[in-house]
Amino acid sequence: MLGALVLLLGCQLAGDAAARVAGVPVPGPVLGMALLFVLLVLRERLQPKAPPADRTALGAVTAALLGNLSLLFVPAGTGVVQQGPVLLRNGPGLLVALVVSTALTLAVTAWVFAAVARRVRR
């Protein structure tokens, strides 16, 4: 389990450091995700007989983190208590913008994905 934690944190650290060194505005954890994916692909190539990654300690730690993903947004969400004045001044506009924009984004993204997938399959 400790090894899996070190692997996750190590990938995030490497991603953060790479983003800083390259001076690109890419978030470190996203680069870390790409790095871990490459490592998992390499592991499968180099050790074809090893158990699949999701049956190892890494799989267990990952399942625990992603199974409680919603929890991780509670601290940032509770920051709403600081936003009283801004929300009072811009409340209706922000609410309409969030609701309409989010619904529109869901619809456009899913529709484009499904439409292109149908075309590719043909």
């Binding site: 991603g15 978030p27 470190g28 954890p29 994916f37 990654a53 990952t62 983190l65 509770t78």
Partner: peptide, 27 residues
């Protein structure tokens, strides 16, 4: 909120490793 976040930051911090962990279902 600052007092609250001093405790809650340990949960908030896990957003980073959780993002990295998305590599496993991706794989």
């Amino acid at each position: 909120f600052q007092t609250y976040f001093e405790g809650a930051q340990f949960v908030h911090f896990l957003l980073g490793p959780a993002t990295v962990a998305l590599a496993v279902p991706l794989w």
